[in-house]
Simulated assay, not measured.
Amino acid sequence: MKAKLTVKEVGGLRGEHVYELESGKTWLLKSSNSGGKTSLLRALSAVLSVPQDGDFGKYPREEAIKLGIQTEDVSPKEGFVNVHSKQAEVTLEIGDVTSKYIVTRDGNYISLPHNGDPRFLLAGVISNNSKILRQLRNVDGRDQPDDFEWAVRELSKAARYEDILNLLKNKRDEYSNQVITVNRKVKDRERLEKEETNLIQEKTKLDKKLDDTKFEDTNIEELIKKREKLIEKIDNKRTAISDEETKIKETKGKLNEIKKSIKIIQKENKEYEAELKKFDLEK
């Protein structure tokens, strides 16, 4: 599979640079000092790690700062962007999938990658400033060289196992409540339809009685008023039935969304259960 990386105004790289990559081959990057090697690696790391909402979370953000992808909060300017430019842009095309990351000098996001994963910075990057090498050299400042508990905590999906289970339970409860709501609304609609049928039958009887009544009949005005009230009631019932139909459709739509969410959560849950089997979390 081939990929194309387009880097524009990132770090020390001025202008636009395009690189062609191909799986199964080793990509060797050579240049003189200050030639843009680090900037290129930052660009690739950014487009693969910046999350869709732009929020790295505390632990990965520390790594993003150390790797030059993010800037300290005290800094007013984004170091990822070339000092002479207003914004930096990175585009990664792999097959039919395109990821784009655009950030301004002020740190505002214009475009965020759809598939960025902050965990990539913890295990997918090997450089002098990467987490693993800092730890092995005992200059990490957080973890000792032989303490890789963070790998399970930060990289494994099993760390979110309990949260996912609770989310799944909440979704199931929400689904059950929506089912109860739909059933109640269906019964309400059936009741309204029955009342409408009774009113129509009563109106039909009145219509027949009016047809059989002579105009000189003193009760005709009263019958007409009664008929008009019945027509009004029928219209109200029909409006109520229509409203119930709309509510039922809306509720069923919510049910479908919940079903989709449950399927996604169940899939993740299976992945987490599989990961849990790989780790002895008590150690």
Score class of each variant (00 low, 15 high):
Met1Asp: 08
Met1Trp: 02
Lys2Ile: 04
Lys4Cys: 10
Lys4Asn: 11
Leu5Trp: 07
Thr6Trp: 00
Gly11Ser: 05
His17Arg: 11
Leu21Ala: 04
Ser31Lys: 08
Ser34Val: 04
Gly35Trp: 06
Gly36Arg: 02
Thr38Gly: 08
Ser39Tyr: 02
Ser39Met: 04
Leu40Gln: 10
Leu41Glu: 05
Ala43Leu: 04
Asp53Met: 03
Asp55Met: 04
Tyr59Cys: 04
Lys66Ala: 14
Glu72Lys: 08
Glu72Cys: 01
Glu72Asn: 07
Pro76His: 04
Glu78Thr: 07
Phe80Thr: 01
His84Asn: 08
Ser85Val: 01
Val90Gly: 07
Glu93Trp: 00
Gly95Leu: 11
Arg105Pro: 00
Asp106Gln: 08
Gly107Ile: 03
Ser111Lys: 15
Leu112Asp: 05
Pro118Gly: 03
Leu122Gln: 09
Asn128Leu: 11
Asn128Cys: 04
Lys131His: 14
Ile132Asn: 02
Ile132Met: 08
Ile132Trp: 01
Ile132Thr: 11
Arg134Ser: 06
Gln135Thr: 12
Arg137Phe: 10
Asn138Ser: 15
Val139Trp: 01
Asp140Lys: 01
Arg142Phe: 05
Pro145Gly: 01
Asp163Asn: 10
Leu165His: 05
Asn166His: 12
Leu168Tyr: 10
Lys169Ile: 13
Asn170Ala: 14
Tyr175Arg: 15
Asn183Trp: 02
Lys185Ile: 06
Lys185Phe: 09
Val186Asp: 13
Arg191Ala: 10
Thr197Pro: 01
Leu210Phe: 05
Glu222Leu: 13
Glu222Cys: 04
Leu230Glu: 08
Lys233Thr: 07
Lys237Val: 07
Thr239His: 06
Thr239Ile: 12
Ser242Thr: 14
Asp243Asn: 15
Thr246Ser: 12
Lys247His: 08
Lys249Leu: 12
Glu250Pro: 00
Lys252Glu: 15
Gly253Leu: 08
Lys254Glu: 15
Lys254Gln: 13
Lys267Ile: 02
Lys267Thr: 15
Glu271Asn: 06
Glu275Ala: 12
Asp280Thr: 04
